[in-house]
Design a protein around this nucleic acid. Structure first.
Length: 194
DNA sequence: CTAGGGATAGCC
DNA sequence: GGCTATCCCTAG
């Protein structure tokens, strides 16, 4: 007697990721009201968004033939927010008591080398993170630097001078042809190959 | 409204 | 049946 299951399309998932990138985790209503996303998400409620996000950020690695009886509940480990807790990233929790459920953020890249206080080394991984950000943002024509910055700040724990870093990196990626820059909008070649 | 825990539809 | 993605309930 519940409603029939309406599975999420990849377009809807992309819209949700973009929404979270723009407005932050937990601002489901705001995401729904985003003029760019409201049409794709028109069949979803704020609660649907919340539930879906919870589910998307979980990877279950238990083959489970032998799971404790309980109604199977998963432990979720939401992606870290831009708040005041040291990076608990890359904490691939192994097991919690008797539940052998192991989860990790969907965008799981190691960010080792990043410090909360400041950066000291070169971050060759930044390239990958930027690429991943643009890809996951999935905006039809590419993304503005500020949007990219917001997204990365959602997922990771960038140093305080991250804005400068990002600007420099984007500039480099653009001039080296790894990214396309048109009117302040950065897009990956990926955008034009589909 | 959002966060979580619970319930259930559907798949294998 | 077990299992997950989705849907429902409700405290705060």
């Amino acid at each position: 007697m519940g409603a029939p299951k309406q599975r999420w399309t990849s377009e809807e998932e992309a819209a949700l990721r973009a929404g979270v990138a723009r407005h932050g985790v937990g601002n489901w209503r705001m995401i729904l009201n985003d003029p760019e996303l409201s049409s794709t998400l028109r069949y979803r409620s704020n609660v649907d968004l919340k539930d879906k996000w919870r589910n998307m950020n979980v990877i279950v690695t238990s083959s489970s033939t032998r799971d404790r009886g309980r109604t199977s509940t998963r432990r979720t480990r939401a992606a870290p927010k831009n708040n005041d807790q040291l990076l608990a990233m890359s904490t691939i929790t192994s097991e919690v008591d008797d539940e052998i459920v192991d989860v990790k953020p969907i965008v799981s890249m190691s960010v080792e080398g990043w410090n909360t206080s400041n950066s000291k080394k070169s971050h060759s991984r930044l390239d990958n993170i930027i690429m991943e950000a643009i890809k996951n943002l999935n905006e039809p024509t590419g993304s503005h630097r500020t949007t990219i910055a917001n997204y990365i700040e959602e997922q990771y724990w960038p140093p305080s001078d991250f804005d400068h870093l990002l600007s420099a990196k984007l500039k480099y990626l653009a001039t080296s042809g790894k990214l396309l820059k048109v009117n302040m909008i950065f897009s990956s070649l990926h955008h034009f190959m589909l």
